[in-house]
Amino acid sequence: MNFQDIIFNLQKYWAGKGCIIRQPLDLEKGAGTFNADTFLRCLGPEPWNVAYVEPSRRPTDGRYGENPFRTQFYYQFQVLLKPSPDDVVEQYLGSLEQLGIELDSHDIRFVEDDWQSPTIGAAGLGWEVWADGMEITQFTYFQQMGGFSLKPVSAELTYGLERIAMYLQDKDSFWELKWNDSLTYGDVLLDSEKQWSEYNFEVADIEMLQDLFIRYENEFHSVIKKNLVYPAHEYVLKCSHIFNLLDAREAVSVAERTLYIAKVRNLAKSLCAEYLRQREDAGYPLLRSNISG
């Protein structure tokens, strides 16, 4: 199954389960969790079922394209099911079968992995899902976001698309993956991976980044004052990404790290509080549509 077919199949499968299929957010972010479709929608009582591809950036994970499956840029396929259905694990396993993974011939493991993202005050309990030893999905029952306890609880499924493709195509490296019948993943992304690794680790202008962090942080504060949740959300993401870049440049001491994380967490917290307030004021419109549907 080609890389792009995996995406088509997952989209189709989850659309069939009642998810809306969304497109990626056009901003740098570390994971699909940061997309407002998860970050904000997991808050409050309204149901929400969504699936989308999310290009994700982890500057410190860059290996100049030399590691077979660690990169600073990769694609996640994100599913958020709120509230988590009773048969969520079976639904998930069904999606693997949809991809041609026969459950009786593979060792599918649910390995404890309690997920936390201190930068956005989020926490959940769940697993890394392993297929024959390879981590292919992060499966999390969200318990907290922006410091707020969640009810109902959402199940977040984050597929590592490249790893699944390696597995399905029997390849030893991202770069050898077939994107379609004629091009490989390496043809499409290897050059950019090398350049970004160099940029993240060696080139990115530290002073500029430090300066940007402050500007973005200030912008967040003035935007949230005007109750503009969605623009404010993007500035949280920008701050988070800048912090990750500074980290890759080894420009963050241990003491500063705590400080940066605390700053971003505070932004996330006031963002979530404002979102919750606005939904409540609006009378939770999706709660109504759920009843009728």
Partner: peptide, 11 residues
């Protein structure tokens, strides 16, 4: 299964 695990260990 073993093939998959070999690949993971290699990485």
């Amino acid at each position: 299964i073993i093939k998959g695990n070999e690949r993971v260990l290699k990485a």
